[in-house]
């Protein structure tokens, strides 16, 4: 067994996994609080990457300010999306909401194809060319940045949910919307902020991962699919589930890609999930009673 290779695969897997966690935390938050499966979630990932690209090329600002700008902009977009698509449909059947979010996803994807063009774009980051060596493991600085930024942002998010007043309102709404409303929680405000948080996290993920992959308008469907897999694995609506599920998927895919076949990497990832679901249909951290 080649331990160096294994360590390298694991490190890559964890970095990819953190990206999945960033994507799926927003997805799971939106489900937990709004009881909505947001098909358009991946589009915010795509927009995060493209906004970073355009901020750099059009405004001429550096990579890191562009990331910050894109994250904030995508988060702000969340307000609009919630207002136009999700808040008006909050009392509708879950199909209606799911399908209208699918429509939104297609709308944004094809709009982006029209506006940004089909061909992939390359996002330049000053950190992609420099590497960092930890023992025998080699990572580009960009990957280290993805990991560090993800850890920082996720820790802040968890802390906010756990300890702030707003976090309490969010948890109350997730558990019992009517009860929360009766005790004076402004449900609409909670929904809005949840959406901002979710979109911001997805946008940040896109902005961070953009430089290590090509960006193209249909990347959103890839992102939302990964997000779905993770939340199903971890348990829909569970924030720790998104963390464990995302890291698991990242590591499993990296190992499968390294040792089995790059082509089947994704299929093997799914196969693992099916095994888990056979054992626990509600996901690792999901609750049975729903």
């Amino acid at each position: 067994m080649d331990w160096t290779l294994l360590g390298q695969q694991l490190a890559n897997g964890v970095v990819n996994g953190m990206n999945y966690v960033l994507i799926s935390t927003g997805l799971t938050l939106v489900f937990g609080v709004l009881r909505v499966i947001n098909f358009a979630h991946g589009e915010f990932y795509m927009l995060g990457a493209f906004l970073t690209y355009f901020a750099m090329s059009a405004l001429g600002i550096g990579y890191l300010p562009a990331v910050l700008l894109a994250t904030v902009a995508v988060g702000a977009l969340g307000i609009l999306v919630n207002r136009l698509f999700f808040w008006p449909l909050r009392k509708e059947h879950e199909f209606t909401v799911l399908l209208s979010s699918l429509g939104l996803a297609l709308l944004v994807t094809h709009g982006a194809e029209l506006g940004f063009g089909h061909d992939p774009k390359y996002l330049n980051s000053p950190f992609t060319d420099d590497i960092l060596e930890v023992g025998t493991i080699v990572l580009t600085q960009q990957r280290v940045l993805i990991f560090a930024a993800a850890v920082l942002v996720l820790a802040a998010t968890y802390a906010a949910i756990r300890w702030t007043t707003f976090g309490r309102m969010m948890r109350a709404t997730a558990q019992n919307p009517e009860g929360a409303a009766l005790t004076g929680v402004d449900i609409r405000f909670v929904h809005t902020i949840t959406f901002v948080l979710a979109c911001g996290l997805a946008g940040l993920a896109g902005a961070l991962v953009g430089p290590v992959a090509m960006i193209f308008p249909t990347v959103g469907s890839w992102a939302v699919l990964k997000g779905f897999i993770v939340v199903i694995l971890g348990g829909l609506g569970s924030v720790p589930g998104a963390l464990v599920g995302g890291l698991t998927l990242g590591v499993v895919e990296a190992l499968a890609g390294g040792y089995v076949s790059l082509g089947f990497m994704e299929a093997i990832g799914y196969a693992i999930i099916i095994l888990v679901l056979l054992w626990r249909p509600q996901g690792l951290f999901g609750s049975v009673a729903r």
Partner: peptide
Amino acid sequence: GPLRLIVFAALLTGSVI
């Protein structure tokens, strides 16, 4: 061209709502 896909998406969203 690509606009037709946007029309489809709008059709879906609109009809669902």
